[in-house]
Each structure stands twice: as structure tokens, then as C-alpha cells.
């Protein structure tokens, strides 16, 4: 004889499952898995994944700057070209009034912020969808993918700021002493951008055709945001609502005031923008973490 045949067992639970017995149709509802997020643990995991963020960003940058001149030109020329067009159209033709600051500088400040946002959206929204095979292999907090693309966009932004410095020279002015206001504004800008990138990136995994809508959104956004014109062009009583929906409006306006006009950013608008960005960030993060659990199932 071939030895003792194994029996159908489930000894640990002391329940025998006789062969052929109808299997239960589902788990008892109280067992259904619910994700619990512990902020400390989440922060710890994100910190542990910093190498991955760096490597992902580095890979993108290296691919882009393989031909250093072209890569650099890409980061510089796009905003410069837009800036030139805006100067022609909005300054010469539409005659946007920018007071003491040269229009070109005025528009360029807005374009830096806008380019940062749209770069992060264009790359970040696809960051999960493009890495699906990886998501099925290793565990890591998935928010590192949009984060890495934002890091890449940040490098482009730094180059853009360098060009801004050159422009200050060309126009022979200096940034106003109030430029330190840029620091809190930067935080608002990052929070909003990351929040939206989180939502879009996970949305594209579940709704693949959303990616076709992205270019439309970013192309319309440049006109829907006060990049070429001041925030004041938006009807006064709608401004608060507008900034609540699109905090970038207040951020750009704030940068201009701090860098070009030597004024403090409008406190009320900035606070609304900050609150709204926080909602986008936290809300986006929660949505992301909730949907994250199913990504491998549809990958």
C-alpha cells in the first residue's frame, strides 16, 4: 500500500470539511477587510521608500537628460515660448495691465507654476498605469509613483526659476524683499498638485480612458488659471469660490505680489487656497489609499 492517504482536514479550527459539502457562499460580513490607516505607520513606510522615489525620479530624469542639451532645452523652451506668445497676445493685443512689473516677468512667474502643475499631471496621472507590472511584484506604498513624478517636475521648476533669475537681469530689476513669502506659497502649491495627482493617478488605473481627457484638461487649465492675466480679471464676488476650487490662482497671484510688487500676498485669498489645498491633499490621499488595495486585482 502507498502509505496512509491524507484526509481532508482542517484541524486547527477543529472543523471537518467533508468533501462535497456545499462551500459557504461568502465570509461573514464582520470579517470583511477594512483598511485602517495609521498615520505613523504610513509616514514610516513612505520614509522607508525614499530610495525608490529617488530612483524613479532619477530614471525619468536620466532618460530625459540623456542628451543633456535637448533635455535642458525642453525644460526651458516650453515656458519661454509660451511666455513669448502670451506677451504678444495678451500684452500687445489684449493689453493686460500689469502695473510696475514687466508683463513678460509677470507671465513667466505664472507659467513656472503652471508648468509644474501640468508636468506633474501629465506624467503623474499615468505613473501607476505605466508601472502596473511592478505593482504586482513588490510591496511599497503606491503614492511614491506620483510623488516621484512631482519630484521630476520640481527639477524642471528649479531650472525655470534659474531662467527667471536671468530674466530679472535682462529687465534689470531685482526680486522684491518680500520674496520669502514664496516659501509658504510653495507648500500650498505642492499640497494641491500632489493631491490632484494622487486622485488622477488612481483614477486612470480604474478608468483607463480618462487618460485621453488629460491633455484637454491641462490645455484648458492654462487659460482657466490666472497665468496670462491677473487674478483681478476674475469677477470680484467669484474670486473666493474660484480660489477654493483652483488654489493655484491665489498661489500665482501671491508669488507675483511677493516677487514683483514687493507686497505681502493677500492673506484672505492665501488662507482659502491653503485650506482648499489641504482638503485636496488629505482627501486625495484618503481616496488613493482606499482604492490602492484593489490596484493589483485589475493590473
Amino acid at each position: 500500500m502507498g502509505g496512509q492517504r491524507a484526509q481532508v482536514i482542517d484541524e486547527q479550527q477543529g472543523r471537518a470539511a467533508p468533501p462535497g459539502a456545499p462551500a459557504p457562499v461568502g465570509p461573514p460580513p464582520e470579517l470583511v477587510f477594512k483598511r485602517r490607516l495609521r498615520p505613523v505607520q504610513v509616514a514610516h513606510e513612505l520614509w522607508a521608500a525614499r530610495e525608490l522615489v529617488r530612483a524613479l525620479a532619477e530614471r525619468d530624469l536620466r532618460a530625459r537628460y540623456k542628451q543633456a542639451v535637448l533635455g535642458f532645452a525642453w525644460a526651458v523652451l516650453t515656458p519661454l515660448a509660451l511666455c513669448a506668445i502670451f506677451t504678444l497676445v495678451f500684452h500687445r493685443a489684449v493689453k493686460i495691465e500689469t502695473g510696475a512689473a514687466p508683463y513678460t516677468l509677470f507671465a513667466y512667474v505664472g507659467l513656472i507654476v503652471w508648468q509644474f502643475f501640468s508636468n506633474t499631471m501629465n506624467q503623474g496621472a499615468l505613473s501607476l498605469a505605466n508601472n502596473l507590472s511592478l505593482l504586482n511584484k513588490v510591496y511599497c506604498p503606491r503614492e511614491v509613483f506620483p510623488l516621484a513624478t512631482m519630484l521630476v517636475a520640481t527639477v524642471d521648476m528649479v531650472i525655470g526659476v534659474g531662467v527667471l533669475g536671468l530674466m530679472f537681469l535682462v529687465f534689470w530689476t531685482a526680486p522684491a524683499a518680500t520674496f520669502l513669502w514664496a516659501v509658504p506659497l510653495l507648500a500650498v502649491q505642492f499640497a494641491f498638485t500632489y493631491g490632484v495627482a494622487l486622485i488622477l493617478s488612481v483614477a486612470v488605473v480604474y478608468l483607463r480612458d480618462v487618460r485621453h481627457l488629460l491633455p484637454i484638461i491641462t490645455q484648458m487649465g492654462v487659460f482657466a488659471t490666472p497665468v496670462a492675466y491677473p487674478l483681478a480679471k476674475i469677477p470680484h464676488r467669484l474670486q473666493e469660490v474660484y480660489v477654493g476650487v483652483n488654489p493655484l490662482g491665489a498661489v500665482i497671484e501671491g508669488y507675483r505680489k511677493a516677487l514683483l510688487y514687493g507686497e505681502a500676498p493677500d492673506a484672505r485669498m492665501t488662507l482659502i487656497a491653503a485650506a482648499s489645498s489641504l482638503v485636496f491633499l488629505v482627501g486625495g490621499y484618503l481616496v488613493f489609499k482606499k482604492l490602492e488595495t484593489g490596484i493589483a486585482d485589475v493590473a
Binding site: G26, P27, P28, L31, V32, F33, R35, L52, A55, L56, R59, S133, L134, L135, N136, K137, V138, Y139, T293, G294, A296, D297
Partner: peptide, 26 residues
């Protein structure tokens, strides 16, 4: 990498896994 629909999964310690041929991270 995947999450259960119901139940508890608890693995203690570092996990080394070779689940798909296309290993490596990236």
C-alpha cells in the same frame, strides 16, 4: 501586493519574494 476581501493576513518580518519571472524592481 494584493489585499484580501475578508480575513486577517499577518506576516512578520522582511519578505523576500519571487512571484513573477520578470523579477527585479524596475
Amino acid at each position: 501586493v494584493m489585499y484580501p476581501y475578508a480575513g486577517v493576513i499577518d506576516v512578520r518580518g522582511r519578505i523576500g519574494a519571487l512571484i513573477e519571472i520578470r523579477a527585479g524592481i524596475h
